[in-house]
């Protein structure tokens, strides 16, 4: 099952790890926030979703682990294929799915618990850790992956709220990694942080991708997209307008709307 082994192996050529086909999102039955979006994502790659605010990029991101289900009167059409299997069905087990597709939010969201308990909270509730030594090991590897271990190893018992904003956000990343996901979604993870913390988070995102995890990051910061991502998709007013290798998107954009956005005509 997907919940025990992260898909470290590269996806088969004919089958991506995660893909969407004609995904359409409607709020309040009438307001279409996203129109027929098809994209695919592979292991070990970082994809950036860019576009002006209100373009549907965050909405799209929230579809991928079915967080849209938590919003009343929000309906998602189309297919979302995860390991080749459509998860956009009422029967899909959200709880299983979200174990392997993690999410990091805009604001750091540490729980009112110690650093250690923040990491262990979800694994415990999912019955993943069985002994003290397993717990210790999980805490250490997750924190190391999020490049936070050296800073907090002596204060694991302290409240997570005592950490700085950047540290809190890396703790949230570590907490997500502790679930051993194969996809991690980031919703503007640095928008509440200072430049130094932002840099640390970007480093972390790159190093996580190298361990073979698929990462998707929503950002309004174009420089950030060029720094961290391999591929970029540009959204505009509910449409996915253009996608391609990050290099190409920024150096040789085709669509006029993307050109305008990159040259700062709007957004």
């Amino acid at each position: 099952m997907t919940d025990t082994t992260p898909a470290q192996a590269p996806a088969a050529a004919d089958e991506c790890l995660l893909a969407t086909k004609d995904v359409t999102v409607t709020y309040d039955l009438t307001h279409e926030a996203l129109h027929k979006t098809s994209l695919s994502f592979e292991s070990g790659q970082v994809t950036a979703l860019i576009g002006p605010s209100g373009c549907g990029k965050s909405t799209f991101l929230r579809c991928l682990n079915l967080m849209n289900r938590e919003i009343p009167k929000c309906s998602v059409g189309g297919q979302i294929l995860y390991h080749g299997h459509d998860i956009n069905t009422p029967k899909e087990n959200l709880f299983e799915l979200r174990k392997s597709i993690g999410m990091v939010f805009q604001q750091p969201t540490p729980f009112r618990k110690s650093i250690r308990e923040n990491i262990l909270f979800a694994p415990k509730k999912h019955g993943r850790v069985r002994s003290r030594s397993e717990e210790d090991e999980l805490v250490e590897t997750s924190l190391r992956q999020a490049a936070l271990w050296d800073e907090v190893k002596d204060k694991l018992k302290q409240s997570a709220h005592a950490l700085s904003g950047g540290q809190q956000q890396r703790l949230c990343i570590a907490r997500t990694l502790a679930m051993k996901p194969d996809v991690v979604l980031y919703d503007e993870p640095c928008s509440a942080l200072d430049p130094i913390s932002t840099f640390a988070i970007e480093e972390t995102i790159r190093s996580i991708a190298e361990s073979g995890i698929c990462e998707i990051i929503v950002t309004h910061n174009m420089e950030q997209a060029t720094r961290v991502s391999d591929r970029t998709a540009f959204f505009y007013v509910g449409d996915m307008v253009e996608t391609g290798a990050t290099q190409q998107i920024f150096s040789d954009p085709h669509d006029q709307r993307l050109v305008d956005y990159l040259t700062g005509r709007f957004g």
């Binding site: 087990n93 709880f95 299983e96 509730k125 999912h126 019955g127 069985r130």
Partner: peptide, 12 residues
């Protein structure tokens, strides 16, 4: 460790 209740059941 006690076996955990499946999540869907727990939600119900």
């Amino acid at each position: 460790m006690a076996k955990l209740m499946p999540k869907r059941q727990l939600e119900n």
